[in-house]
């Protein structure tokens, strides 16, 4: 990979030197990655300049994952996309033909340079003694999570809960559904996005537990104060894989294909992995993971492919209109 990196960088340097002025890249990403990519962009620009002598200027755009994917589909000129779910990039391939259908096999680890999972954020001292998923369906426990219909993170949370119940009940689908239904009975407010939920929980003081991305939970811990909230890692959760991809059609039009590829491969480099780990994303590199092991408590992880047959199926069964999530809220069904 190293060699390939250098080869690509060399080639890209050649292309870049022909063009005048700094190269511009647009990275269209989802909500919680702002801090991560601000740091990645600075580090990559420095490395790229050292390697190729050319300036690269990377613009960021953040929003809900689905909304961002839709914008790219409708013409937002993203050279690279770094979204919350593979489903959203699949759509770009399928409906927009902006990149080939096999995009996920073009980079290591299913094009996922870092992973995350779903954990709990609770009030300081954990007054309701919330240790694991079972505690969330107890009476009198109020759970905050965004609306899975409009938030990518909330979909991961929903599937994490479902997967936990499925594993605990030896794959009994009805039990899992019962569990998730009970869980959502404890949800007093469904914000439209992940950050909205964090605010509801932390600023407004509503709810006993917030279901959150692991990286969001630690960020919130630092931003909002360790004296107010603490993180609880459940015994079992879902392996959330936010993938990245070059948008071929846009990048080739801009002539940025090589630098875009180098940018994404930078995420897999030691430096990129360290930045990810420092921002509480679980790195893929074993070496970096070992160095930051203290940041990431051990827990059982299952993948969406394993329990749900991939995003396409999960989306259709659970989150599309008339799906299981809708039925939870429809009386008499």
């Amino acid at each position: 990979m190293r060699l390939r990196n250098i080869w690509i960088a060399g080639l890209a340097a050649g292309t870049v030197l022909l063009a005048a002025g700094p190269v511009k890249l647009l990275n269209v990403s989802y909500d919680p990655t702002r801090e991560l990519y601000t740091q990645v962009n600075a580090a990559f620009a420095k490395q790229w300049k050292a390697k190729s002598g050319a300036e690269v200027q990377i613009s960021q755009s953040h929003g809900g994952s689905g909304k961002q994917a839709r914008s790219v589909l409708d013409g937002l000129p993203a050279d690279v996309v770094t979204l919350a779910l593979a489903y959203d990039i699949d759509v770009l391939a399928e409906k927009g033909h902006l990149l080939p259908a096999n995009w996920q096999s073009r980079l290591p680890n299913n094009s996922t340079p870092y992973t995350s999972t779903i954990v709990f954020l609770v009030r300081k001292g954990n007054p309701k003694h919330i240790k694991d998923w079972d505690d969330l369906v107890r009476q009198g426990v109020s759970v905050i999570t965004p609306n899975p219909k409009s938030s990518g993170g909330a979909r991961w949370s929903y599937l994490a809960a479902w997967g936990y119940a499925l594993k605990k009940n030896n794959g009994d689908d009805n039990k899992a559904r019962e569990f998730v239904t009970k869980l959502y009975k404890n949800v007093p407010v469904l914000d439209s996005g992940a950050r909205g939920s964090t605010t509801t929980f932390a600023q407004r003081g509503i709810g006993d537990v917030l279901l959150s991305w692991e990286n969001e939970a630690y960020l919130a811990l630092n931003e909002l104060g360790r004296d107010k909230v603490e993180v609880v890692t459940p015994s079992l959760s879902i392996l959330a894989e936010p993938p990245v991809a070059v948008v071929d059609k846009v990048a080739s039009k801009h002539g940025t294909t090589e630098v875009a590829k180098a940018y994404l491969e930078f995420l897999y480099s030691d430096e990129g992995q360290e930045i990810a780990a420092k921002n509480y994303y679980r790195p893929q590199s074993a070496k970096v993971a070992a160095k930051y092991a203290a940041n990431f408590p051990k827990l059982g992880l299952f993948t969406i492919g394993e329990l749900f047959g991939g995003w396409q199926k999960a989306q259709k069964r659970h989150f599309d209109d008339g799906g299981v999530f809708d039925k939870i809220y429809t009386p008499g069904s």
């Binding site: 647009l26 269209v28 613009s59 960021q60 755009s61 953040h62 929003g63 914008s71 937002l76």
Partner: peptide
């Protein structure tokens, strides 16, 4: 309305 058509590119 602006949010839908903007694309949210920072500084642009």
């Amino acid at each position: 309305a602006v949010s839908v058509v903007s694309g949210h590119i920072r500084g642009e």
